[in-house]
Amino acid sequence: MAESSITSSGTGTEAAARVADVLLLFTGGPEYLGVSTISRQLGISKAVVYRILQSLVSRDVLATDPGVTGYRLGPAAVALGASALRRFDARSAAAPVLRRLRDETGETTTLSGLVGDERVYLEQFESRAEIKMTVDIGTRFPLHAGSSGKAILAQLPAWRRDAVLSGELSSLTDRTVTDRALLAEQLEAIAADGVAVSLGERQSGAGSVAAALVTPDGEVQGAISVCGPEYRFTPEKIERYRHLVRDATTEIIRNWTNGPSGAHAG
């Protein structure tokens, strides 16, 4: 069947999926995306991509700028994102704990959410040190690199973890582990310990210690981490942070499951 419009090409579900796929491309990569790039990445015709983009622009979900080729997220998308963050219960439950953890460690603390087979930074409380690590809120990262990603991946069901390991395992730094057998061994150890440690695996010169956020029914929601310059992550500090992040995840899950009365937005 020829592709003719957003609503008439295939089923309504397929059309909605295409719109969602287009929008998800804007959560990572360059700020501006053009018709050809989107068409190539999603494997759908330029005509259909163009109609989707025009529909989203008309609703202020996407926007264009004079003199710039391509589309960017518009004010409606920003409003939706802000609303989602406000309503994300884990963020509210985690905020006071992460703020205290930042003060206890002197390092930046973060909250990541699981999105498909990737993770996204949802919140951070920056270190007050002059030299510190900061993260990009809303940017997607693979699960196989870095402590937060590995902490999440280690707690996922075996079938889902195997699916990630069977896919592309790109090297983000020269320390990123891409050997599937070695990575599987590391994940098994992380699952048993409950904590993941990264020294330059996702970002050169960065150290981090993370633990997954797992609800009482076993659903993996994301992870929290303590992160900073690698040279400050000595074996003694790493061991201390391991205990702190374990305790912090327990408190966050307790706040979360207790509902609004147990969590306070930050």
Rank of each mutant, 00 (worst) to 15 (best):
residue 151 A to F: 00
residue 135 V to L: 11
residue 104 E to R: 15
residue 156 L to Y: 03
residue 110 T to C: 13
residue 146 G to F: 05
residue 207 G to P: 09
residue 93 A to E: 11
residue 41 Q to A: 12
residue 66 P to S: 04
residue 172 L to A: 12
residue 36 S to C: 01
residue 37 T to C: 04
residue 227 C to F: 00
residue 140 R to A: 11
residue 62 L to V: 02
residue 31 E to T: 13
residue 176 T to N: 03
residue 89 D to V: 05
residue 252 I to L: 01
residue 175 R to E: 15
residue 195 V to S: 07
residue 74 G to Q: 10
residue 71 Y to P: 00
residue 75 P to R: 13
residue 104 E to N: 06
residue 104 E to Q: 13
residue 157 P to V: 04
residue 162 D to R: 12
residue 210 A to P: 09
residue 147 S to C: 11
residue 224 I to M: 04
residue 148 S to I: 05
residue 215 T to C: 02
residue 116 G to P: 11
residue 32 Y to A: 14
residue 164 V to A: 09
residue 205 G to R: 05
residue 85 L to N: 08
residue 138 G to D: 08
residue 74 G to F: 04
residue 249 T to F: 06
residue 136 D to M: 14
residue 66 P to N: 04
residue 158 A to Q: 14
residue 125 F to E: 10
residue 59 R to N: 04
residue 266 G to E: 03
residue 83 S to G: 12
residue 129 A to K: 12
residue 123 E to G: 00
residue 130 E to G: 03
residue 97 V to E: 06
residue 176 T to P: 03
residue 170 S to P: 09
residue 221 Q to K: 11
residue 89 D to C: 05
residue 58 S to H: 03
residue 109 T to H: 07
residue 86 R to L: 11
residue 254 R to F: 08
residue 139 T to I: 14
residue 67 G to D: 09
residue 154 A to E: 03
residue 22 V to S: 03
residue 235 P to Q: 08
residue 219 E to Y: 04
residue 121 Y to F: 15
residue 25 L to R: 15
residue 76 A to T: 08
residue 117 D to I: 03
residue 27 T to A: 12
residue 10 G to M: 07
residue 167 G to C: 09
residue 217 D to Q: 14
residue 132 K to E: 00
residue 175 R to Q: 14
residue 217 D to A: 14
residue 111 L to G: 11
residue 191 A to D: 05
residue 219 E to I: 07
residue 257 T to K: 05
residue 66 P to W: 01
residue 217 D to L: 07
residue 171 S to C: 13
residue 167 G to K: 09
residue 118 E to W: 06
residue 126 E to L: 13
residue 250 T to P: 01
residue 73 L to Y: 08
residue 19 V to H: 01
residue 123 E to W: 02
residue 242 R to C: 12
residue 208 S to T: 10
residue 193 D to H: 07
residue 243 H to V: 13
residue 72 R to M: 09
residue 70 G to W: 08
residue 23 L to N: 00
residue 216 P to F: 05
residue 256 W to E: 06
residue 248 A to W: 00
residue 202 R to I: 13
residue 102 R to A: 10
residue 160 R to K: 11
residue 246 R to G: 05
residue 131 I to W: 02
residue 168 E to Q: 12
residue 184 A to F: 01
residue 96 P to H: 05
residue 69 T to I: 11
residue 78 V to Y: 13
residue 109 T to E: 05
residue 122 L to S: 07
residue 222 G to Q: 09
residue 130 E to S: 07
residue 240 R to Q: 14
residue 64 T to N: 01
residue 42 L to I: 04
residue 130 E to Q: 04
residue 32 Y to I: 09
residue 101 L to Q: 01
residue 28 G to S: 15
residue 63 A to N: 08
residue 232 R to I: 02
residue 138 G to I: 06
residue 29 G to N: 12
residue 156 L to A: 04
residue 164 V to D: 10
residue 191 A to Y: 00
residue 158 A to M: 08
residue 192 A to P: 00
residue 113 G to E: 10
residue 225 S to C: 02
residue 74 G to V: 04
residue 118 E to N: 06
residue 116 G to V: 02
residue 262 G to W: 02
residue 8 S to P: 00
residue 156 L to W: 07
residue 16 A to L: 14
residue 152 I to G: 01
